[in-house]
Simulated assay, not measured.
Amino acid sequence: MTELRWLSDEEQRTWRAYLHATTLLEDHLDRQLQRDAGMPHVYYGLLVQLSQAPEHRLRMTQLAKDLKITRSRLSHAVARLERHGWVRREDCPADKRGQLAVLTDEGEAVLRRAAPGHVDAVRQALFDRLTPEQAEQLGAIMRTVAEGLQPQGPDADLPWLR
Rank of each mutant, 00 (worst) to 15 (best):
R113Y: 03
R31F: 07
M142T: 13
L25R: 04
Y44I: 05
A125K: 00
G117H: 14
T104A: 05
T131L: 12
R5M: 01
L47G: 06
T61F: 02
L7K: 01
R31C: 07
R129A: 08
C92F: 02
T144K: 14
Q62N: 08
R83G: 07
E82S: 15
L47Y: 05
L50T: 08
K68R: 15
L161G: 06
L130N: 05
L149A: 10
D36I: 08
L58W: 07
R162L: 05
L47R: 09
V119Q: 10
R71T: 09
R89N: 03
A21V: 03
S75M: 00
V42N: 05
Q152T: 14
W15T: 03
E90I: 03
C92L: 11
P132N: 10
L130I: 06
D36E: 15
D105W: 06
V87F: 02
A17L: 13
Y43P: 00
E3I: 08
A79L: 11
K96D: 07
E10H: 06
H84T: 09
H76P: 00
H20G: 02
K96L: 08
H76Y: 09
L111Q: 07
T144E: 13
E55P: 08
L161K: 06
D66G: 06
V145I: 15
Q12H: 14
L25W: 01
A53N: 10
L130R: 04
R57F: 03
V110C: 12
Q137G: 03
R123W: 10
R129V: 04
P159L: 05
A77Y: 12
